[in-house]
Amino acid sequence: MTNHLHKGDLPEGLDLGPVVAVDSETMGLIPYRDPLCLVQLSAGDGDTHLVQLDRNTYDAPRLKALLSDTNTLKIFHFARFDVAAFQQWLGVVTTPVYCTKIASKLCRTYTDRHGLKDVTRELAGVDLSKQQQSSDWGAETLSAAQIEYAASDVLHLHLLREKLNEMLAREGRTALAQACFDFLPIRSALDIAGWPETDIFAHS
Rank of each mutant, 00 (worst) to 15 (best):
W89Y: 12
G91F: 07
T94Y: 04
T94C: 15
T95C: 04
P96T: 08
V97P: 07
Y98M: 13
Y98K: 07
Y98P: 15
T100A: 08
K101E: 08
S104Q: 09
S104R: 01
K105F: 11
T109W: 14
Y110Q: 15
Y110H: 15
T111R: 15
D112F: 11
R113A: 11
H114I: 09
G115T: 14
D118L: 03
D118N: 06
E122C: 14
A124S: 11
V126L: 11
V126T: 08
D127Y: 11
S129T: 11
Q131M: 06
Q131Y: 12
Q132N: 14
S135G: 05
W137F: 08
W137P: 00
W137K: 01
W137I: 02
E140Q: 10
T141Q: 14
T141N: 11
T141W: 13
L142M: 05
L142R: 08
S143V: 04
S143W: 03
A144Q: 07
A144C: 00
A145K: 02
A145D: 15
I147Y: 00
I147K: 01
E148F: 02
Y149G: 01
Y149F: 08
A150H: 05
A151Q: 00
A151K: 06
D153K: 05
D153R: 04
D153W: 07
L155D: 05
H156D: 14
L157S: 14
H158S: 12
E162A: 09
M167W: 01
L168V: 09
L168S: 07
A169V: 07
R170W: 03
R170K: 11
G172Y: 04
